[in-house]
């Protein structure tokens, strides 16, 4: 697996190991510059995300995690460079639950059903088969029991399970989770991540997990994209979460 510091002029670039074998690439970022209103937040990003990989996107608040995520999902146009999709991709996006307005009187089932909307054309009712498929997805995420309750009345962990069911209902091959453990207690966090790891392995899903939680990353992720101070570090957990490297990064953060 390759490790690339995308800013070769910086101190960490000496650790690049381009000689390692690469898995089949799914998404390649090619000299990407991202930001808002032509103001770059991150520049010169070149990395690739392999098929069926489990990648954690790490970084402090304001480091550009959301900007990178939005660009990957196609919600934000890059300022320069490009995002190359190397194989057919359906994103199963699991946003932060805080972004949903509690005013909508939607049940968990109604929220999960949105996952099949792409396959049901405008003006058509959702067929029974798609409804049944949504129920299966809810069952698979252990959300079947509370799917009839109001979505905004569910706990943080329950909401995440409904949203993951919605992502699975899209028949996604890439699961993108934006801080799924925010506002979720320790026990629910543990079972949620165990579940994500399980479906990643069983269904060969590519997982991109945005998080702050280093122990979680160490336990579940295989790859890391670490955004720090305008730089993007990409490598395996073993390579990036070594004590020396952590100390180096934390030292940089302190300074």
């Amino acid at each position: 697996m390759n490790t690339r510091d995308v800013d070769p002029s910086r101190k960490l670039s000496g650790r690049v190991r381009p000689d390692e074998p690469m898995s089949e690439s799914l998404i390649t970022l090619d000299n990407l510059s991202i930001g808002y209103n032509n103001q770059p937040v991150l520049s010169g990003i070149s990395l690739s995300i392999a098929c069926a990989s489990f990648t954690a996107l790490l970084g402090a608040n304001g480091s550009g995690k959301s900007t990178l995520l939005k660009t990957l999902l196609g919600l934000l146009s890059p300022i320069s460079g490009r995002v190359r999709i190397d194989a057919p991709v359906i994103f199963g996006y699991v946003p932060q639950t805080i972004q949903f307005d509690p005013l909508y009187p939607l049940t968990g089932f109604e929220v999960a059903l949105m996952g099949v909307y792409e396959r049901v054309g405008p003006g058509r009712r959702v067929p029974q088969a798609e409804r049944d498929f949504t129920r299966e997805c809810l069952k698979a995420t252990d959300a079947g029991e509370f799917a009839r309750q109001r979505f905004n009345e569910l706990s943080g962990g329950q909401k995440q399970r409904v949203l993951i069911a919605r992502a699975l209902a899209t028949k996604a091959n890439v699961l993108v989770l934006d801080e799924p453990t925010a506002g979720v207690d320790a026990a629910a966090t543990h079972s949620l991540l165990e579940f994500i790891t399980e479906i990643h392995e069983k269904r060969k899903l590519t997982v991109l997990l945005v998080t702050h939680d280093l122990p979680l990353v160490r336990k579940h992720a295989r790859q890391i994209i670490w955004l720090h101070d305008g730089r993007v570090l990409h490598g395996t957990v073993a390579e990036l979460l070594t004590p020396e490297r952590m100390a180096e990064i934390l030292e940089m953060e302190m300074s």
Binding site: L73, P95, D101, L106, V111, Y117, E118, V120, P122
Partner: peptide, 22 residues
């Protein structure tokens, strides 16, 4: 009646709708 699900989808979660190419 015809476009309820599309109107609801873009109102409730426009990012998800956009990722599904709505």
């Amino acid at each position: 009646g015809l476009f309820y699900k599309e109107l609801l989808f873009v109102s409730f979660d426009r990012d998800m709708a956009a990722t599904l190419r709505k």
